[in-house]
Write a protein that binds this DNA or RNA. Structure first.
Length: 269
DNA sequence: ATGCCATTAGAGTAATGA
């Protein structure tokens, strides 16, 4: 079972690129982020024509996540638990039954968190968008704990908006005051990892220079000024099933690309 | 230090992103 995450930065602008990649990469399940569309406007028919079931959790203009799957999507839930007042569409999960295993698949779009304000001592203040990011990560931690406690195959795939380590950025010193790389952000990410999750790419690719995002600005792609912020975190029962993983970086060089590229894992499930 | 570029909504720019 091949499972991918892909921040498409707007389904209206990205449908041709998405369809091309689906045909070529042939994933079984895809977690999409930033569909930037309400559910009713999502072009499900074109994707269903390629053999996918489609479940969306959209909102107007911003954010929005979706799951695509060649296998049935069962027990679909929308929204990250823990705050009924949160109206941003950033979380969707479902169960996919493989040949041998049922896998709980969570698609997420973690808040960016910028801009960050700093106090007189230079410490980031937990307020505004940055406060929302850290609060959201606390809720993610709680959901992650529950997935871990179930002791069954599960993964959380998406745009985490977290640069985990210096080697995950071409120019790490440019990001030290950014919500994606602040120590407090990375600590929150590591607290989740430390529950026992395996981050797919780093198990097989310890080398630096692997990125999943290149800004549209300042010729970032041409200069390979990238960051790795799209991740797949697996429970132990899921990690045991992983046979391969990768980043489809070539997608970034195509016509009218997203600023992110797909990241995928292959499971023997 | 700021904007760079792109997307959406919707008719001007404004908000957002990372």
């Amino acid at each position: 079972m091949k499972i991918a995450t892909y921040n498409i930065n707007g389904i209206k602008a990205r449908l041709p690129a998405l369809l091309d990649w689906l045909k070529e990469a042939d994933p079984d399940v895809v977690c999409l982020q930033e569909i930037k569309s309400v559910d009713a406007a999502f072009p499900a028919e074109e994707i269903e024509a390629l053999g996918y079931n489609v479940e969306t959790h959209g909102q107007k203009s911003f954010n929005g996540v979706a799951l695509l799957s060649k296998l049935p999507l069962e027990d679909v839930t929308r929204g990250l638990p823990g705050d009924d007042s949160d109206e941003q569409a950033r979380w969707i999960e479902a169960t996919v039954m493989g040949d041998t295993e049922a896998v709980r698949i969570c698609g997420l779009y973690l808040p960016n968190g910028n801009p960050v304000s700093f106090d007189a001592q230079g410490a980031p203040e937990r307020e505004g968008k940055y406060g929302y990011k850290l609060d959201w990560m606390d809720r993610l931690h709680a959901r992650a704990e529950a997935l871990m406690a179930a002791e069954t195959p599960a993964l959380m795939a998406g745009d985490y908006n977290i640069i985990p380590q210096r080697e995950d950025a071409a120019r790490p010193d440019a990001w030290t005051k950014d919500a994606l790389f602040l120590l407090e952000s990375r600590e929150a990410f590591r607290r989740i990892l430390n529950l026992g999750f395996t981050e797919a790419i780093r198990t097989r690719h310890p080398e630096p220079g692997l990125y999943s995002f290149w800004d549209y600005q300042a010729n970032s792609w041409e200069r390979n000024n990238g960051i790795r912020i799209d991740h797949v975190l697996m429970t132990p029962a899921c990690a045991d099933l992983m046979t391969d993983c990768g980043i489809d970086r070539d997608v970034r060089a195509r016509e009218k690309p997203s600023d992110h590229v797909p990241v995928w894992v292959e499971l023997a499930a």
